[in-house]
Amino acid sequence: MLSRIAESLFWIGRYVERAESTARILDVHVHRVLEDPWLDGASAGRELLAAMGQPADFGLSVDSRRVTETLAYDPDRPFSITGALCAARENARTARVVVSSDVWECLNVTWNDLPHTEELARRMGPHVFFRYVRERTAMLAGLVDATLARDDGWRFLVLGRSLERVDMTSRLLSSSISDHPHSQSWISLLRSCGAHEAYLRTYRRAVDASRVAEFLLLDRLFPRSVYWSLALAEQILAELDGGRGRGSPRSTVDDTARRLVGRTRTELEFHSVDDLVADMPDLLASLQSTCSTVSAEVTARYFAREAPRSWAMEVPA
């Protein structure tokens, strides 16, 4: 597979996951601000923006409208939903030859209908928009599952998705770190990951901070947990590395990205549940930095991006 195309697939995975996660997070945030009379909407909004890496200026009032504008509609930023979907579509255009027509059309239609949906959401409330994004991304995931061969192209796409999911879940957790352990917001957190029902069936008891953290970070079976995503990323990196690695299979893992993901996954796996809440700030920060390092390593190794060559004429003698 062409390196350039592989890179596009990786970023389709990342951007689509980003759009979906952001839609989930925002949906919950907006409704929480509406439903919870005791919640300070402004500070929650400020925390959310900070967790997403888009801190608001100090003087600015951060109501949920502003949060939505920034994280949902802003077309010029690749971390807003609109921006992420545009970027995903552009990458799909580049990789048009390897993504199936179903996948391409799904993304293209999603992109075509964004302005209309945004307009609708401005009249009828943002939920319309979030729901649209969730449905379309779910459809896309289904089409990826049903119509892409399990070749390297698919692997890069899923690798991008897994890394982004780790990153997004950790950002989500860090937006709630300061909440009271029994606060309503932990339920919101679960909801935004689509994990509330799964959590209840797993623990069969009331929601509290340490269990939520445990579930979202460590659960072995839930596909949006950090552990699950890391394990998937690790497996894919191993498959990509297989047959390519130079190191002996009997000694250490040669591939930096794979080593990093494996180490992080192991650290999580053997982390004591009791310390989880206390260690969380550091843990989440390190998860986020792991994601970007791994992304950079994968880029360097597989996408072999070179600065665009520009040619100069030799000056005549």
Partner: peptide, 12 residues
């Protein structure tokens, strides 16, 4: 002699 290259400015 004629050619193209990618890199810094060239002097003869």
């Amino acid at each position: 002699m004629r050619g193209v290259y990618s890199g810094g400015a060239s002097t003869s």
